[in-house]
């Protein structure tokens, strides 16, 4: 079964594109290497010292023409390859609209995965085949990197930041997940698997998982338990912005910036409220640094996203 392979399995929509670029580059490189090596060999033999080959002087014009010619040729080739690969990159940047959102937290030395309905996995991610999956990732400690060779995707997982990547698996089966940014002692043991299943199997798997309640509902109880509702809902002594339907909207801040209210913004508000004070409000929100974990921030974010314009029901 495991013969001598040169390419890993192509198991995502990205894989054939990456492999095509790779093989093109292999072909071009091989051609250039063979050309140079052949020329060196031919010249070495023909013009070895004492050989009878004629050696008239090279005219300056010929020299100049060749120089300019191959410089221009090399530059053109370089720019052509850039143009092709750059456009492939830009076209594959954004995940499709309907992608399943999976949250990934790397930590020394394991992967913690959260599905949108609250299902959690450790060192494994089950996904349905032929469905786009968007990964929103962060780290709890040092920088790790989420690498699935069969999908040809990789993105670092950084503490203090959310990074993203996406894939659409095209083959069922189990694929290696490697950590590929050196992260300490057990870096080489931080291995997981991506299990791609057909729809029926995936649906069955989902049903079989323990259901802890969805993220947004857990976020709602956290919102109350942590006291957020005290200021952000209804009439309170402290004037705090309403959170109804604001996810994704533009927010004007008191220092003049205008930013989008997204996951990173919400995280900053919870941990560093003084960084993003909305225009017209006082910087009175306390910081919850040290009081909420990354997982709880996830749930609060999910809850806030779920709030419609009519406002939370308390």
């Amino acid at each position: 079964m495991s013969g001598f392979e040169l390419l890993p399995q192509q198991a995502s929509t990205q894989a054939p594109q990456t492999d095509l670029l790779y093989l093109f580059l292999v072909f071009v490189s091989a051609a250039i290497v063979i050309l140079i090596v052949l020329l060196m060999l031919v010249f070495s033999i023909r013009y070895r010292r004492g050989s009878a080959a004629p050696r008239p002087e090279l005219r300056m014009l010929t020299t100049r023409e060749f120089e300019i010619g191959w410089t221009a040729g090399a530059l053109f080739l370089a720019l052509f390859i850039f143009g092709w690969t750059g456009s492939v990159r830009l076209s594959m940047l954004a995940a499709p609209e309907n992608a399943i959102e999976i949250h990934v937290q790397g930590k020394q030395w394991m992967w913690k995965i959260q599905h949108p309905n609250g299902i959690r996995e450790i060192n494994a991610l089950h996904v349905p085949v032929n469905e786009p999956v968007r990964l929103i990732m962060t780290s709890e400690d040092v920088i790790h990197s989420f690498f699935v060779p069969a999908f040809r995707i990789k993105e670092d997982v950084v503490p203090g930041l959310y990074t993203q990547t996406w894939f659409k698996a095209t083959e069922t089966g189990s694929q290696h997940l490697f950590c590929t940014q050196f992260c300490g002692t057990q870096h080489s043991r931080m291995i997981g698997e991506i299990v791609v299943m057909n729809h029926d199997d995936y649906a069955r798997w989902l049903r079989e998982q323990p259901q802890p309640g969805d993220l947004a509902a857990e976020g709602a109880s956290l919102f109350k338990a942590l006291g957020c509702s005290g200021c952000h809902i209804g009439n309170s002594a402290i004037r705090a912005p309403s959170l109804a339907g604001i996810y994704g909207r533009l927010v004007h801040l008191s220092d003049g910036r205008t930013v989008t209210m997204d996951d990173a913004f919400i995280r900053d508000c919870i941990l560093e409220p003084r960084k993003n004070v909305p225009a017209g409000y006082d910087p009175k929100m306390p910081s919850f640094k040290g009081e909420v974990s990354d997982g709880e921030i996830l749930r609060l974010t999910a809850y806030i996203r779920s709030l419609k314009s009519t406002g939370p029901s308390g």
């Binding site: 990456t18 370089a78 690969t85 990789k154």
Partner: peptide, 11 residues
């Protein structure tokens, strides 16, 4: 050149 090509470098 392979590494300057972002999709290949990603892999």
């Amino acid at each position: 050149l392979f590494l300057a090509a972002i999709p290949v470098d990603v892999h």
